[in-house]
């Protein structure tokens, strides 16, 4: 009992002292009136502490939560300036999306360029060019694979001759030649490892590209494959023009859906 009394007294004395110091610290009289209200309330609270404990249990918790709620309300009502971190995060997101746009734009332009070049140089109709580009995130990329789909008709020569036998994929174009399309696929050059070197390896052999397309490269076996002459020209054109490794260029005949 005595302990409790002494601790309570100590609290009260400390708070009153505190209030006196605060009174001295305050800048001028105008503020002092308001500050006195607060200090008075706090002194009151400390003096009433035993009573408060008796009546409503843990009133300290209540006070704390009251302050927290109050602060939260104040913060919510204030206009928030975004923090620097938030701005940086948003900038990163925006930069990422713009990077994606850049990548897709570059890819599209690359495809369009290859397509027009092939059409101009060889006269073969190109129905589609599909290039896969690996980006290392620093803005430089590797052309990992390019698939060019050729429409054989305009050049004429290859289509008619080889179509007869046809692998399962290549269509036996008995009736309609012009519809048939040639697909040139460029297989991945190397692992993504070397960023720009992928472009430089023009000299690599072409044979590695072969297997993917069901033997389309060997014209002798399969009827619908790209004629070696055209394939060679396209390979040379693409590998010279875009410095894509010859080995990663695959020329194939797309299986045509002939009626």
């Amino acid at each position: 009992m005595l302990d409790w009394l002494s601790s309570w007294l100590r609290d009260v004395v400390a708070v009153v002292l505190l209030a006196a110091v605060v009174d001295l610290l305050l800048p001028n009289e105008r503020m002092q009136r308001y500050a006195r209200l607060i200090t008075g309330l706090i002194v009151l609270l400390v003096i009433l502490t035993p009573l408060l404990r008796l009546v409503q249990g843990d009133f300290q918790m209540k006070l704390e939560t009251g302050y927290q709620e109050w602060n939260r309300e104040l913060e919510n009502s204030q206009v928030k300036m975004p923090s620097l971190d938030e701005i940086m995060r948003r900038a990163e997101i925006a930069a990422g999306s713009s990077q994606e746009q850049v990548v897709s734009l570059a890819r599209t332009q690359l495809e369009a360029g290859i397509e027009t070049a092939i059409e101009q140089e060889t006269g073969a109709g190109v129905s589609a060019v599909d290039a896969a580009v690996k980006w290392d995130g620093q803005g430089s990329g590797t052309i990992s694979s390019v698939v060019v789909t050729l429409a054989l008709d305009s050049n004429g020569a290859p289509a008619g001759a080889e179509e007869g036998t046809g692998t399962p994929e290549t269509v036996k174009e008995s009736a309609i030649q012009p519809v048939q399309a040639v697909e040139i696929e460029v297989s991945p050059n190397d692992g993504g490892g070397q960023g720009q070197t992928g472009l430089d390896e023009g000299a690599k052999g072409g044979e590695d590209s072969v297997p993917v397309m069901g033997g389309s490269i060997e014209p002798a076996d399969e009827g619908a494959s790209v004629p070696p002459e055209l394939e060679r020209r396209i390979r040379a054109l693409v590998s010279n023009g875009w410095q894509i490794g010859n080995g990663s260029i695959r020329v194939e005949l797309e299986p045509s859906r002939s009626g």
Binding site: L48, L52, Q56, W70
Partner: peptide, 13 residues
């Protein structure tokens, strides 16, 4: 505004 939570507790009591 700082006084509000304290007043709240006292009034509740």
């Amino acid at each position: 505004v700082l006084a509000v939570p304290i007043i709240n507790v006292i009034v509740e009591t």
